[in-house]
Amino acid sequence: MGELIVFIIFATVALVSAIGMVLAKNPVYSAIGLLGAMFSIAVLYVLLDAHFVAAVQVIVYAGAVMTLFLFVIMLIGVDNREAYGPAVPAQRIMTAVVSIGLFAAIVLAGRAAWITGSNAFGTPDLNGTIENVSDELFGTWTVVFLSTVMLLTIAALGTIALAYFGTDVPDEEATL
């Protein structure tokens, strides 16, 4: 019963914040709405006994990603309307139709059976989920863990390449 009450409260907060994020005119309010949604989803993860995911949700999304968003908002300027360009006619209506359509399609498709009978999920050991996650991360998923190294390298390289505003000096000797 207690769980249900917590779920109802935070599911409501998540929905209201998400809707507020989309509807808010001021980008800072949007950012705060996003923050609220992310925190409430972290609480929902705790309810599902996924403590590690909940912690990651708070650290990565509410921490790092939100900071990034706020930096971007500060760089563009809170009141800078021109930065967004002219609105496309009927954009809101089109967005609403597409989102509601996709949502309806998934709900209709999943109405009868969400999980179609797989036995791949074992029963998770609830004591020490962090140890279990690290076992998986550095055991089964080592290759994935290592290949994200390439992604991070590319992020750094791409930033250096794109942030360079000087004039490129052609290298005549390099021409083959």
Binding site: M150, T153, I154, L157, G158, I160, A161, Y164, G166, D168, V169, P170, D171, E172, A174, T175, L176
Partner: peptide, 24 residues
């Protein structure tokens, strides 16, 4: 390679990005 020679100082990034892209 003509482009790599043209971008001068940033050519190392261009080459490294291409190599990593193909690995991906």
């Amino acid at each position: 390679w003509d482009l790599v020679a043209k971008v001068g100082k940033r050519s190392a990034e261009f080459v490294a990005l291409s190599l990593l892209a193909f690995a991906g």
